[in-house]
């Protein structure tokens, strides 16, 4: 076989695999929406999943947020030099954190953990026939396993993002006061007030909702399709993490386009 031909076949297979993944994800999402009216039946699982997502993410989010906020302050003041009035520092920090840094960094940090954990849990259940066991007990695995995780992610991500935003702005505030000559508490807060737009905050939280959906769904879709023992679970976990991160970044771009070039333009 010529190298060109075998490369072509390889790429073709990859494309088919990708389309299969996308198809499976779409089908699973459809099932989740169809079962959503029954979420109340899993209220305990739903609460447990929300707590778990919170517990898994908060320590890391804490560190990541404070430092990313601090860096934003340092970076912005460096870029401002003497050209931009210092009163804009607060608003620059606030808006970049709320619109972009808060939701995306939180989603990447939390998403890696959450999608991996879900893929590993559900994947283990799949390869040890626990998913089949649910079926034989007339319990739909999507309703029982995926539904509570999905809605827990969709609700918790905005909550965690709000916490991350606050921590990041606090980090920026402290660093700005400590390191920038002439910066005062009043100046920083005045900057935020000057360019505060509710739709910035709304856009960031809307992103977080979508990111919460992505990380739980990628975990679920690869977990449910895991095959062949512990090795299969490992592969499912890795695929879920990669897919979660990629989809978060890609979707961030599309959401930004829709939100800021179409809706709030």
């Amino acid at each position: 076989m010529t190298p060109l031909r075998s490369t072509g076949i390889y790429l073709g297979r990859q494309v088919i695999a990708l389309l299969e993944d996308v198809g499976a994800l779409a089908r699973l999402q459809g099932q989740v929406f169809r079962f959503t009216p029954q979420l109340f039946r899993s209220s305990r699982l739903f609460m447990e999943q929300m707590l778990e997502i919170g517990n898994r993410s908060l320590p890391l989010v804490f560190v990541v947020s404070i430092f990313s906020g601090a860096v934003t302050a340092v970076q912005a003041s460096y870029q401002f030099q003497a050209w931009v009035p210092l009163v804009l520092l607060g608003s620059t920090v606030f808006r970049s954190v709320v619109i972009e840094l808060g939701p995306v960094l939180t989603a990447l940090v939390v998403g890696g953990r959450v999608s991996a954990a879900i893929a590993a849990e559900i994947g283990t259940m799949k390869v040890t026939e626990q998913v089949d066991a649910l079926e034989t007990l007339s319990i739909h695995p999507v309703r029982y396993l995926v539904l509570p995780r999905f809605w827990a992610g969709v609700i918790m991500l905005p909550v965690i993002t709000v916490i991350a935003d606050i921590l990041a702005i606090m980090g920026a505030y402290v660093v700005a006061l400590l390191t920038i000559p002439n910066m005062t508490s009043h100046l920083f807060l005045e900057g935020i007030r000057l360019q505060f737009y509710a739709h910035d905050v709304f856009s960031g939280l809307l992103k977080a909702v979508f990111f919460g959906a992505i990380m739980t769904m990628t975990g679920a879709v690869f977990g449910l399709r895991a095959q062949g023992g512990a090795e299969g679970v490992g592969q499912a976990t890795m695929k879920a993490v990669v897919a979660s991160c990629l989809l978060i970044l890609v979707l961030d771009y599309f959401l930004a386009t829709v939100l800021f070039q179409v809706i709030f333009e």
Binding site: E121, T128, E129, Q130, D132, A133, E135, L137, S138
Partner: peptide, 30 residues
């Protein structure tokens, strides 16, 4: 499926539940 009981080769008990919850899950959900 409700007409069948199925004992799996590896038992396939739910790791996240205790014994009582395992046995009662079908009743609880159905």
């Amino acid at each position: 499926r409700r007409r069948f009981g199925y004992l799996f080769q590896g038992a396939a008990l739910f790791d996240s539940l205790d014994v009582g919850e395992n046995v009662g899950l079908g009743l609880k959900e159905n």
